[in-house]
Design a protein around this nucleic acid. Sequence first.
RNA 1: GCUCCGAUAGUGUAGCACGGCCAAUCAUGUCAGACUCUCACUCUGACGACUGGGGUUCAAAUCCCCAUCGGAGCACCA
Length: 495
Amino acid sequence: MKKLAPELLEELKEKKEPEKGLPPLEINGSLVMRFAPNPNGPPTLGSARGIVVNSEYTGRYNGKLIIRFDDTDPVTKRPMLEAYDWYLEDCLWLGTKPDEVIIASDRIPLYYETAEQLIRKDGAYVCFCKQEVFKALKDEKKACPHREQGVEKNLGLWKDMLSSCYKEQEAVLRIKTDIAHRDPAIRDWVAFRIIKTPHPRPSVGDRYCVWPLLDFEGAIEDHLCGTTHIIRGKDLIDSERRQRYIYKYMGWAYPKTLHWGRVQIYEFGKLSTSAIKKAIAEGIYTGWDDPRLPTIRAIRRRGIRPEALRKFMIDLGLGETDISLSLDTLYAENRKIIDPIANRYFFVWSPVKMEIEDAEPKVAKAPLHPSRGGIREIPVGTEVLVCRDDVETLKVGERLRLKDLYNIQITGISPLRAKFIGTDIDLIKKEKARIIHWAPTDGLKVRVLSPDGEYTGTGERGIEKELDRVVQFERFGFVRIDSVDDGVVAYFTHR
RNA sequence: GCUCCGAUAGUGUAGCACGGCCAAUCAUGUCAGACUCUCACUCUGACGACUGGGGUUCAAAUCCCCAUCGGAGCACCA
């Protein structure tokens, strides 16, 4: 068959292995996609999905990827200056370098230009209605008095808006849609409002007092950027219907859209960016990379590999169903990468000292990795440290083995004492006795920061040589060695 | 209230646009066993789902209707 019809074989393989993660994209000509975050906080796991999926597609189809900062709200979702770079950093970490970076707050004049054109086409009008008044009219499918005030008047009023003639809340520019549209969400929506708070970016500052809302800014940008495909949350599904009015007035072609549902991560529950910001300020979290947070920076600091995160995100696929997922799958993915390369070490949490009678001081030789070779040497005297968890289940008379050291028999619980009873591992195997790990009494002070708290204890020497690497603390889990200055600080990866 | 979506095992997904090959895929999880000087890794096996009700049809996870449940929008937030 290989000889007769290799292409058939190929086809067979493809049929058997359909697109596991992302569905194929319908493309006419070229592909341009964008990832459009608001930099009001650092990238989260949710952002990672956007970065990964968009870049996966542009990579697959040789398209162009744009990162666009939708930072047009200086107040409610005020951008954070550091976050712009954080996004770029995290993109790189995830293996993606956007082909172009666009910052909306740099391009306000472009939006003004389109706004004016829309007014000239009688597709937008300046409205002075109070919010509640307009809502009441809208709910009854009734136009407000400003809707038909005429193009010339609108142009004048728009100029006045731009020249700061009005206060906040006093005037807005609305897009004329269909005031009787069956879906109230579509009726004459607001495109620009007045904000006098300066923008946090120094280069922008108080230059503008009229700011576009997302639906307007996004609509114009997607056209200017030549976006062919948009993937966004289904909470923005109405955006398309709203934005299409602009596209119709301007004679533009609307990009293809795809949506995904809301993601809830089991381990983190619902943490909003603003809530986290507050908690950090109050000192509840140590910072945006606190291991308890669902930010990319935190995940990275914990030693999750970007390839694992990518695969995890791609396997989620593209569904409009809301999903609530557990990170177990991500951890399993990461373990596959990390387990073959992570060196093993002993770390004893909540250590308890154990005295061993009849023991000769010696140097334990333990493998650095169960299958890759390499040896670590740990000198021991007549005392070792073991975990309180283990001690709590010990009984006097019980025989067990200190891993990679020798066999002992418990002679007392408090204080904890044991006696040396030989080095032969077979004895332990025959008795199916336990094997526990231990640490030398003069080991390193180790702190492990994990999503569910902090573990402190003692680790064997040598860990300090693994700075910035992921290792496995035997019978504990994987950790990334974060610092070794004053004792070791490790970030918990997963079990 | 008005307008949209969506619903496959504990979780996430494949299959659904062109009904039969689906007593339903893969991954993760859980349990049991093997291996192992780690409660890790690996291996083996088991567990486990088409939301419900009608209809169309020789045949429905796939098409239609209703119900239920879940989500979103109706902001001068993104």
